[in-house]
Design a protein around this nucleic acid. Structure first.
Lengths: 150, 150
DNA sequence: TTGACTTCGTTGCGAATGAAACGAAAAATC
DNA sequence: GATTTTTCGTTTCATTCGCAACGAAGTCAA
């Protein structure tokens, strides 16, 4: 007297945190990516590299890989594209010749000066839209990001 | 008396919500994807299709596209792979012949019965790890997901 | 010094992706 | 009822991705 179909456990996708998080992240990313693309012609990987360079100059690929959560090949390719479009300059590090020094060009700096204003505005707008949920979200993200990797 | 470098606005990547959200989502996704891959040999797009089929049978590609936030080409390809591995069956809808009916095979149902238990366990474990931040995170995600698209 | 090992960044490869084009089928319009 | 429009799913195309392999450069140890 066996059932011909396995009993299916209850499961609600829309309450499943990894799914919710992925959809929410994609939603925000898309909104941002559109801005970057339309206004500056850059992609998100390129954006991440640029943002880090705007904060600290003379950074290596390895540094970026560690600090902005991107694979080194992704960083490398993004850097190449940015160099080709004249936004950053790539030089060999003089001490350790394995390292590459990345830095913004004058064009790159000018663009970032403009872009970061928009980024700050985006953040402010987002916080306004989220209202009191903004702080809660950040608390949750703090905890999540602090979780040890598994 | 002009400056030779543009003044760079203050900006902190690690406080930038879209970035934080993207990193957090990727972190969780990776953790989950590893489980699915190792135990069941499926990818995340495939997982999403399967989850939806476990909840409601005889679903079209279009339905899935709308409900699990995936492009139709992604759904279509995931479905083809799942059919090839014998986890789902694809049939033409009898009424409207443009539509495809997707449904789990017996193998698929058996696998999902096992997989969903793990998914529920994952969610419980995650909530435990997040502690009181779990509810806050969900509140934030609720609000975020409810935002009108821009 | 020499040889083994590690680190850094690039690149080759196969797979996956989004966007657009497509044919088939249905719906709407005349 | 014929014809335009729309919808559905697949497929093509160019691009991007992650992973592994690689050469070059540096470090370590005998």
């Amino acid at each position: 007297m066996s059932e011909d179909a396995a009993e299916m456990p209850e499961f609600d996708l829309y309450s499943f945190t990894p799914y919710r998080l992925a959809v929410a992240a994609e939603k925000l990313s898309e909104r941002l990516a559109r801005q970057y693309r339309d206004r500056f012609g850059i992609s998100i990987p390129e954006w991440r590299v640029l943002v880090h360079l705007a904060q600290s100059d003379d950074v290596s690929v390895r540094d970026i890989e560690a600090r902005v959560a991107m694979e080194k090949s992704k960083v490398s390719r993004a850097a190449s594209r940015l160099e080709a479009s004249g936004l950053i300059a790539k030089t060999r590090h003089e001490g350790d010749k394995r390292l590459v020094k990345l830095r913004l060009t004058a064009n790159g700096r000018a663009m970032m000066a403009e872009l970061l204003v928009l980024a700050n505005a985006f953040q402010a707008e987002l916080e306004a839209e989220l209202g009191d949920a903004a702080t809660k979200l950040e608390t949750g993200l703090d905890r999540l990001l602090a979780l040890p990797p598994r």
